[in-house]
């Protein structure tokens, strides 16, 4: 439990930043199965007309294209910046923690003259990374997406429903032969629910089940 006691006064002079899953430590299971939060990754949603998206490559994106093929993503050679297709005129730009504000400023400048929208959703969404040979099977417990290798390939990103939570399921590009990693992008307020539901669904693979924070008094 990385979280400080909320009743304590904040340290003077130093703003404290917490992600919605700050209270959850990484979990592991059999055969190298792990689940952890990729905290504070920069996330921007870009809306832009699909007819110009194919031709525009803002410098700020370091050569990464806006994918126009549905459910695809493009990632920089260094792996630090990715652009995910969310809809025909909607992308999510995922970047290293702390880079989103600079990126937003640069993109705003470089897209000037276009009809576009750029919104910072860094704190809106939480990224949960699951790695291990059983990941697809764990996700099958929660989503109706076809998780078979032939249907869900590296680099693909698909919006769907996991349990009761809407989320984007994104298979990260990994080196060939490496263990697959799926990144779930979910609203912050649903993150604890989804984290725990995954841990519950991964019980079969040796992961310890965690239950959502609860115990609030509802009735007088």
């Amino acid at each position: 439990m990385a979280q400080s006691d909320p009743t304590l006064k904040p340290p003077q002079g130093r703003p404290e930043r917490l992600s919605a899953l700050a209270h959850r430590a990484p979990l592991s299971g059999d055969e190298g199965l792990t689940m952890q939060e990729a905290a504070h990754l920069g996330k921007l949603v870009l809306r832009l007309d699909e007819s110009v998206a194919g031709t525009i490559v803002p410098d700020a994106l370091n050569g990464v294209h806006l994918p126009t093929l549905p459910c695809c993503s493009d990632t920089s050679a260094t792996g630090t910046l990715s652009v995910l297709w969310l809809g025909p005129d909607e992308w999510m730009i995922v970047s290293e923690a702390g880079t989103e504000q600079t990126l937003q400023t640069e993109l705003e400048l470089q897209l000037k003259g276009q009809h576009f929208q750029l919104s910072n959703v860094t704190d809106y969404y939480v990224c949960i990374d699951i790695t291990g040979p059983q990941t697809r099977e764990i996700l099958m417990n929660l989503t109706t997406l076809d998780m078979h290798r032939r249907s869900f390939e590296a680099g693909q990103v698909k919006g769907s429903i996991l349990g009761h939570a809407n989320a984007f399921v994104w298979q990260l590009h990994t080196d060939t032969g490496a263990t697959e990693t799926f990144r779930l992008i979910v609203r912050s307020s649903m993150a604890d629910y989804l984290w725990c539901l995954i841990s519950r669904s991964a019980r079969l693979f040796g992961m310890a089940e965690e239950t959502p924070l609860s115990g609030e008094r509802l009735v007088i």
Binding site: N141, S189, Y193, L197, T211, P212, L213, S214
Partner: peptide, 13 residues
Amino acid sequence: GQHVGAHFMPRRT
């Protein structure tokens, strides 16, 4: 299935 008890539905905070 697993959607019972603590996992029944999301409570957003």
